[in-house]
Design a binder for these strands. Structure first.
Lengths: 196, 196
DNA sequence: GTCTATACTTCGATAGAC
DNA sequence: GTCTATCGAAGTATAGAC
């Protein structure tokens, strides 16, 4: 499982069937969780035979990695577009709370916790994403009233990202206590971080 | 699976074997993730036969619920002790970042996302825990310099909980960007939230 | 009350046919 | 390059022996 030194033949990367399997895997992941992403269920969702999963992907982990990379690259590109279009804290906040990203991250975080290859890939993207976000926050804040010295762009970003993640996770559970208050605060803060 | 209206006989709740299975399940959960919590592996960890899992627990979900409740009650009690001993923001922060709690929550959050019974139980405890924490924060802040109106105890708690969760998750991945800065800020903030 | 023998389903993966 | 036939291991759960 770690080495994967089998010499079984693997299908072409540009195969349409392969793309269908990745798409199906992502759907199953979001709807039923990573434990439900089995060769049989993914194939059924794609309308294909289970053995095809193992023809196009050496192991299930290889499939997970492809699903993750596809989503991560898309998120990456989307963030860059959004921040170029309107560089503001509000745009950062939107990107942190947008769509199915949270559910996706939750599944992969749980998966990464116990699978080395996936953890490495996720850490890699997380670092890159954080760096990109940090540059954006620093740039946005530099054009405004200065904040107290202790409140660096890192601190602002960690707080926004942390609260966004927490709210998303609790929403999934059906818990909402404190959310309205936090969102009301952010509603003011995002446009006026210095509080003047 | 949802109803569980089987009339199969189930072992006594005070059985020692049953307790061993719960303990073993928790270990497997933390070490290998929720997908690895199967009757065979739990039993192997406990040095028992796989069929015993199904004698003491109607389904695997019942086992998960027992594992969750045990940990949740323990966390509940521990928070109450700690906050009674030293009521401070620092104690709140410690309780949010303490031990294996984050890994445990991550596993159960992912599980809860797709299993109704577990989601309900987790939501229930999350609400209770949040209420308890909120009372503590409000009580602590009321004995200090007042904060700006917009920064209610809810806002403080959501920020602390969010950042604590984010740092824990990223640490598990091996990502550390921004952590030192956020922790340095908190180091000052926890003792002096009004920033005077 | 406690545990075992057993049924049946689903799993990942490979070797080999087209 | 693409897909299928098939294997052995692991999964949940139940009925029945002690």
């Amino acid at each position: 499982m770690t080495t994967g030194s089998s010499n079984r033949r693997i299908g072409a990367e540009d195969s349409g069937t392969r793309a269908r399997l990745i798409e199906a895997a992502e759907q199953v992941l979001l709807e039923e969780g990573y434990a439900a992403v089995t060769s049989r269920r993914v194939a059924a969702r794609a309308g294909l035979k289970p053995q095809l999963v193992h023809y196009y992907f050496r192991t299930m982990d290889h499939l997970f990695l492809e699903v993750f990379r596809r989503r991560a690259e898309a998120g990456f590109a989307q963030f860059q577009r959004a921040i170029a279009d309107e560089p503001s804290l509000r745009t950062i906040w939107s990107s942190l709370t947008h769509g199915t990203g949270s559910a996706f991250n939750l599944e992969f975080a749980a998966l990464a916790n116990h699978r080395k290859a996936i953890r490495a890939e996720m850490a890699n993207y997380a670092e890159r994403f954080r760096t990109m976000q940090l540059e954006a926050v620093a740039s946005i804040l530099s054009g405004r009233e200065p904040l107290p010295d202790a409140i660096t762009p890192d601190v602002v970003l960690m707080a926004l990202a942390g609260v966004a993640q927490l709210i998303a996770l609790e929403r999934a559970l059906g818990v909402s206590g404190g959310h309205d208050e936090a969102l009301a605060f952010l509603e003011r803060y995002l446009d006026n971080p210095a509080g003047t």
